[in-house]
Design a protein around this nucleic acid. Structure first.
Lengths: 388, 388
DNA sequence: GTCAAGTTCTGTACCGCTACAGTATGACCG
DNA sequence: CGGTCATACTGTAGCGGTACAGAACTTGAC
């Protein structure tokens, strides 16, 4: 690493209050303060101290004040979360699993925003959100080894090892943007409707030769170059891709449009660029392109400019998601909007329900729930009737 | 919420293997399978079963196979993470705290990418990353109530309540992009150097009237409108803002440049736009503007276009971070690059060290470490000599 | 004055696992 | 054949809490 490293003050982070350095080495641990320590000091039972922290209504205000004061004096912070998690059977966090490396998810603004929305919503119940790396080193498998109250699976492939463990643990699960699994709740975008609307929009403008640009995680590998799908109707791989292609084709097919689909590994610029070129740099170039995401559409815009093509004059482009970049391009993108906040809210709510259900709490729904988030086509400047 | 909700199959997610429904209600819990259950079935001690899972070298391969088979048959998934966390004194996750709501952090591509980098790196050690909502409902305070092995604080204000709890818990801490705290490790960007380089670049191009556009979380409140700082040299609030302003001024000041600074609440478009207007829409408009982030610079570009100003002809613009949007604008942004992967790597490493240190592990550094991530000016199309 | 119904505090029994210090057994050795 | 050493397994004692069922003492009603 090209970093300047400087080791500073070697002192302890906290003053050693009692100078209790029993051993010569560093990292001394001051004898742990527990409920019992506090109880002994005040002269009450351990249970009473526990109540002072966790159930204030179970003791007199006065005694509670005394206990809290003693605790403070001893440097007792509060019940140990790990011990409490064991005793109460609740960890206070929700796990999150992605197919791709967790790192990638943050690069996709849509995935990131969604996560943010979920985290915010989860915060309302005081729960944290634990991102589970798919690959744990040293034999540890986070999905198996980390304590949590439930988990949400986002755009995972069905064969995910993590999913397998979570299911075995019988954790309350919610699936987002992926094929729902029997017995678990799910939150899905109305991809088909959104795609259909987008395709209809192009047809209404008069387009009859349309290109599709989709991801195919399942069948392509990282490093694989883009390719034209043998049959547009079956192009794409992964739940969302398939749904979107189906939605597009539900309109394009019956209308007898000529459809050409390019597949790429994922929707990052790196893979999208050659795929875009595959569609744009050919004699029978489509007059319009439907993209898997705004990120892809943005790349198409760039490639088009490089090839000297005018958007929307020579080619119309439709994105997906209505992410911030949709309005940062010139022309601004026609795209399918999804409400990420609603999606996050729904996810958190269903997770809550699943947890309540798994604990047999009253008022919990007695079966899995399925929420569909509506989509809406937003028409901006990147689409127009085909030239001529 | 405008969502279609449909409750589907009300059956159980998992078949009730033993039909052990002791109560009439739903959510029955099949008697828990623990190490003891497995031990009884195989006829060995509980400890041996524990070893079969956690320390394979402690028993014969044969017995281990038998135990694992029995466990599988009983549906035992593996040691309960919560119990293990208590017994081992390690939770397997790292907490993450943001000043702003967790949700916001994901909207900032830089923050998101950084988090992603950390998560990836953490994954290498099999640890998860738990996002701690600052405000817990129902009296729970995540920073106090969630089990974790350490935490990283990212761009927090020093008075953060969460920080306070984490410190009291004496958790291993690493501070990122914020004022380092006595005794804890930190990862910082070399903001001063980057800013200075950017300012120098403008001076070399011949600019003598420069605008600054910075955030001021501390002194401004959400909703507050942007303002011109009384004194450019003291503009901005928050560690990073201050560092960047200092860096810029370290060059602009001595050069005798005329500096005008606008302050805004945060660097989202909403707050950046009026701030940009404050600088651009005035008679003595600066010939160049140094921005707190690429997001802000991007907004400046937009406002400039709206005002009919040419970039870089009428005004030069410099961003910060070299986020993806820096190359999506026209012209592409001159900006200060930071290596987010290196930052994430460094953070994970220091966290590791802090944890090792707090446990008195051999080989752990005996004091806090401080890493500075280098910055580098990347010159693109948004800067040029002033007109005339 | 008695009894039911609070309060307030305590005791016991776990929650499920791991660390560590044994014990037993057999191999190897001189 | 006794002694040393591995190897394989077990027992005990926690880790630091919480749930729940009392116990002791008030209080208030009739």
């Amino acid at each position: 690493m090209s970093q300047d490293v400087a080791v500073a003050t070697a002192g302890d982070a906290y003053p050693d209050l009692h100078g209790a350095s029993d051993r010569a080495g560093q990292g001394d641990v001051v004898a742990r303060v527990t409920l019992q320590t506090v109880a002994d000091k005040v002269g009450v039972s351990r249970m009473t101290v526990s109540n002072a922290f966790s159930r204030p209504d179970q003791l007199s205000a006065e005694l509670r004040r005394k206990i809290l004061a003693a605790a403070d004096e001893l440097g007792y912070v509060g019940p140990d979360p790990a011990a409490r998690a064991l005793a109460r059977g609740s960890a206070g966090t929700i796990g999150v699993v992605f197919t791709e490396s967790v790192g990638e998810a943050f690069r996709d603004p849509i995935a990131a925003s969604f996560l943010g929305a979920v985290a915010t919503e989860l915060g309302g119940t005081g729960r944290g959100m634990t991102l589970l790396p798919s690959t744990g080193a040293g034999g540890t498998i986070p999905a198996r080894d980390i304590a949590m109250d439930g988990a949400l699976l986002y755009a995972c492939t069905a064969d995910s090892q993590a999913l397998d463990w979570l299911q075995r643990r019988r954790l309350p699960l919610v699936f987002v943007d992926q094929a729902p699994v029997e017995g678990a709740s799910s939150v899905l975008l109305d991809d088909r409707a959104g795609s259909a609307e987008a395709a209809r929009h192009l047809l209404e403008l008069g387009h009859r030769r349309v290109g599709l640009l989709v991801t195919a995680w399942g069948s392509l590998r990282p490093g694989d170059s883009a390719r034209i799908a043998p049959d547009a109707a079956t192009a794409g791989d992964g739940y969302v891709s398939r749904e979107r292609v189906d939605g597009w084709m539900s309109e394009l097919g019956p209308a007898g449009a000529e459809v050409l689909a390019a597949e790429m590994y994922d929707n990052t610029e790196r893979y999208a660029e050659p795929a875009a070129r595959l569609l744009l740099d050919r004699p029978d170039r489509p007059t319009a392109i439907l993209c898997f995401s705004d990120l892809v559409a943005w790349t198409v815009l760039r490639v088009a400019r490089e090839l000297g093509l005018d958007v929307p004059g020579d080619v119309s482009v439709v994105g997906y998601d209505d992410s911030p970049i949709a309005r940062s391009t010139a022309p601004e993108l026609t795209t399918v909007r999804q409400d990420l906040d609603a999606k996050g809210r729904a996810t958190a709510t269903l997770l809550d329900h699943e947890i309540a259900r798994s604990r047999g709490l009253p008022g919990a729904p007695d079966g899995p729930e399925h929420v569909t988030i509506p989509t809406r086509l937003v028409v901006r400047g990147s689409t127009a009737p085909p030239r001529g």
